[in-house]
């Protein structure tokens, strides 16, 4: 059974780019355009992994990760933050909120997929 990844980003460009890339690598993908919408989706459905942007209108990525970790079934689900933000100070906040990994945009496909495979295993 294919693993399902939730992509959270307020940019349609990034959502679609990631969806095409991840689907091409054998994963199912669902998308949300902000933290609140993503959180609502996670309360209704279990995902195997989440990739989220940081700077979004409404609930930002770090708040989203913090709230996500309060849902028991998402306590240990891998969450990658994919953002243009590169400051260590902000990364530390992401870590404290419960992020698994941090990737500075633009992502390199080979590096991103290796990271995903490490936490999810090679896709079918």
């Amino acid at each position: 059974m294919k693993k399902t990844i939730l992509v959270v980003d307020d940019s349609a460009t990034v959502r679609q780019q990631l969806a095409i890339f991840l689907q091409g690598n054998g994963y199912q993908v669902e998308t949300a355009d902000d933290g609140s919408t993503a959180l609502a989706a996670c309360r209704l459905k279990q995902f195997d992994m989440v990739i989220t942007d940081l700077n979004m209108q409404g609930m930002n990525g770090i708040s989203f990760v913090g709230e996500l970790r309060k849902i028991p079934s998402f306590a240990s689900v891998p969450v990658f933050v994919l953002t243009t933000e590169s400051a260590m100070e902000v990364m530390s906040k992401g870590k404290a909120a419960g992020a698994t990994a941090w990737i500075v945009k633009p992502f390199r496909p080979d590096i991103l997929i290796k990271g995903i495979q490490k936490v999810l295993g090679v896709a079918a």
Partner: peptide
Amino acid sequence: DPLHAHEGEFNWV
């Protein structure tokens, strides 16, 4: 050159 993550790099946090 400050401490920061570089673009495309994977950083386990």
